[in-house]
Amino acid sequence: MSDTDAMTLDPVDRHLINALQDGFPIVERPFAAVAAQLDLDEDEVVARIRRLLDAGVLSRFGPLYDAERMGGGLTLAALAVPPERFDEVAGIVNAFPEVAHNYARDHALNMWFVIATERPQQVRSVIEAIEAASGLPVLDLPKIEEYFLGLRLDA
């Protein structure tokens, strides 16, 4: 986090981050459209986005795809990893390209990750492969119902 700690966001950065979370137009020159809305110029918008990405303030910029609407499989999985094996097991889990996010959490179940696959039935095989490689049982917690998913955070 040291890179992001070091970066100070000015009010223009904050307006830009907020505006870019409301959606990005699908037009020939979308950065120019965003720039006009914020009273900036196109080059400055592009340069600021590049800087925010380089500094890690933005983790991504582009389309956010929904794995399930694409016909894919998705689950939230958890492991109770013995502390002395934590880094080793994190390496095993992270090596799977189907693991999209992985977070350490302060609980007996201390490793939580999202598995996204091209086909729903592949989730099971990824879980089995992680269990085989780690020697630990994986808790599989697929979504049953989505009540709310927010897509923006005020900068």
Binding site: M1, T4, M7, L9, I17, L20, Q21, D22, G23, F24, I26, I49, L52, A55, G56, V57, L58, S59, R60, F61, G62, P63, L64, Y65, D66, R69, M70, L149, L151, L153, D154, A155
Partner: peptide
């Protein structure tokens, strides 16, 4: 079309929570 169908939830920026 992908956005209208919900395959794309949104096009835009994903901020890092910590950085904000």
């Amino acid at each position: 079309r992908l956005q209208a169908a919900g395959v794309i939830r949104r096009i835009g920026a994903v901020p890092n929570h910590y950085a904000l």
